[in-house]
Design a protein around this nucleic acid. Structure first.
Lengths: 104, 104
DNA sequence: CTACATACCTCGTGATATGATGTATTACGA
DNA sequence: TCGTAATACATCATATCACGAGGTATGTAG
């Protein structure tokens, strides 16, 4: 998929990935793999940004000798997902324009 | 609309705006206004990029004392529009994931 | 003569995704 | 036991991009 198109949905995908159950970086990538491909560096930048934006909170857990940072969505994060759905409506109108105009 | 979401559609909108009839910068902005708001600086950057990517060609015309640069879409530009439609299908799958997962 | 519309352009900034690279542990097959 | 893959985190440099601020110039309406 086009890099630019991905940008608009990546952070929301990450939020959705942790919405119903707290998760951690490595797992998020695996879970999202069938939906969107994202590299580790990309994910960790997104996670950091979402944390700074208070859309999620972090909790470090020791698991089998390894560190795991579990991410939990906040109210703000949930709102971000809802806002995205509204924005999608707008985007759909743009898409309609593209399809209608280009098929003339 | 979210800045990131716009990014993925802006250049295609510009291509669509000139697809059926050659147009120029100032007019493109006016024509696209009801669909997507874009500033002059943004448009001219996009036009330049599209030109460099050989998706359109330029023709300068003197019109009532003012310079007008008419943009004409190329085969490559047309292909970009078609490719976008395919990418949209992919994006729809991502959107479905977001809606389904977030409504659990 | 002033202000607005038309019409172009450039530069700096901030935001972003990503590859490359690094650290450390566990699991497993050769 | 040796090497390699999987697990799990992180940072840095780079490239791409939208956009505001600013600039130039002409025609038109008040």
């Amino acid at each position: 998929m086009d890099a630019q198109l991905r940008r608009g949905v990546l952070d929301v995908c990450v939020l959705v990935a942790i919405k119903n159950k707290d998760s951690y970086g490595y797992k998020i990538i695996k879970d999202l793999k069938p939906v969107v491909e994202l590299s580790e560096s990309t994910l960790y930048t997104i996670l950091k940004r979402l944390e700074e934006g208070k859309m999620l909170i972090v909790r470090s857990v020791e698991f089998e000798g390894r560190l795991r940072k579990y991410y939990h969505i906040t109210q703000r994060g949930l709102k971000r997902i809802e806002d995205f759905k509204d924005e999608w409506e707008e985007l759909m109108r743009v898409y309609s324009f593209i399809v209608e105009e280009s098929d003339l």
